[in-house]
Design a binder for these strands. Sequence first.
DNA 1: TATAGTGTTATCGG
DNA 2: ACCGATAACACTAT
Length: 272
Amino acid sequence: MPELPEVESARRVISRAALRRRIVAVDDSDRYVCRPHSPGELQDALVGRAITAAHRVGKSIWCDTGSGRSGGPALGVHLGMSGKIVVADRDGTEIDGGDRWEGRRQPGDYQWSRFSLEFADGGRLMLVDPRRLGRIRLDPPVDRLGPDAERISPAQFRAALSHSTAPVKARLLDQHVLAGIGNLLADQILWSARVHPARPVDSLTRAEVDRLQRATRRAVKVATQAGGVHALSLLPYRHAGAQCPRDGAPMVRSTVGGRTSWWCADEQAATG
DNA sequence: TATAGTGTTATCGG
DNA sequence: ACCGATAACACTAT
């Protein structure tokens, strides 16, 4: 599920439930999720330290670590397609972030825990991730990300949607251009702004770019306040046979920018 | 049983 | 070198 709103929720879980807890053990045995680190590398870097702060840009989280007065490496967390952060007590009682149904047969048993930190009191922070497309790495290259979609200024947004012939949806999804927008947010933004997803960026009018900017701000705000993209109004209409909730025209589906896209056949015309 | 999928990245072609 | 499209990744849900 994770797009910016879910990732922000995960960051808050870490901030609320994991700060300043001394790490006594690390399970970094999943070679795919912990690539390109070698076995034990994450453990060696983290045992004896604690998370001191959790930051986010777009869909990337990184945690400052330290022990006493010495700082450690940043712990990067990416949730991929199916990851979530769960913090649980020694007995498996979830402190935060968990869903009872997600890969959990009994308290403390997480079938899909792909990485975990164990704290001195026996509690754990886990990356629970069925598909294993999430990622844990030290000192992640967050400087390559574009401006965060929640904080981007109108001028930065106009700059992001310029100098390109790419489909506007591909540009919205490019994390190096604008960080945090995923497939569902992109469809919501384009629908709200009444812009066809395949429109070349350099064909957009100033008015359209402004509508996209406002729609981005609104969609990110709505979803972040609700804790996830499930709150987006377009979501129930992204399926075969659906009609646009504004004008009743058919919702159509195609692939744009390599992703499944849904839009209103009438209001989001192919030419502006 | 077959297919699609809310994300990222290496690779390929222009 | 830049840009964009595509495949691959791993696994579950429908």
